[in-house]
Amino acid sequence: MPTSLPPSAATEEAALHIDIDEIAKSFGGTTALLPVSLNIPSGALVALLGPSGSGKTTLLRILGGLEFPTSGRVLFNGQDATGMTVQDRRAGFVFQSYALFRHMTVFDNIAYGLRARPRGQRPPKAEIARRVTRLLDLIQLPDIAGRYPTQLSGGQRQRVALARALAIEPRMLLLDEPFGALDAKVRKELRQGLRDIHDETGLTTVFVTHDQDEAMELADLVVVMSMGRIEQIGKPQDIRAKPATPFVRDFISA
């Protein structure tokens, strides 16, 4: 359905490439991330894979500007973006619990980012409605605009959260365990849905998961993490064929 595509920044400019340069993060006494480095090529679909507490969410939140690193730099298209505000980053962020606005309809949820724009850049009402409708078509839920989040199933909520993130014409897509709370069948369907949306928008996409099948099946590049460290970065088949550390070998054979 290439015609139903939202006009994405990525279709106009080349998709963002992200460099993570020796990023470390600690919260008070606890170290969440040791210095880690990672290059995410333009337009890639990257999985951050690792057990609970390995620092995946922390790294994703640093990319989105919701957390600031204790040391190190983040570069977007080669330019330092370490101190850039969360608003300026224009990252489409999908939260683990979806974080839909509970007092707003699906329509208002998806329209939120467009309405939040400064007056000069805010699309007119009719244009906002048109874009929301198009996004609802894209997530294949054309009839739920008037519903509230509590009236949706888990899978529907996840797709609305994705549509809301796409509505702002993001420069990148960041998803924290996007399928974590769903049953196996819905997970499989939505997995393909994310792949399709990534391929259509061309957006540089990073998602967090602790499910190695999900990472291996979906991602172009898998980043295996453990205890705040990056254990290995590679294509799924390379990681399978040549695990770099005993941890990776154990984790992917589990």
Binding site: Q87, G92, F93, A99, F101, Y112, G113, A116, R164
Partner: peptide, 12 residues
């Protein structure tokens, strides 16, 4: 989470 979502969507 909802506040953070609003911020990522560009809200002040």
């Amino acid at each position: 989470a909802e506040e953070e979502a609003a911020l990522t969507l560009g809200a002040s």
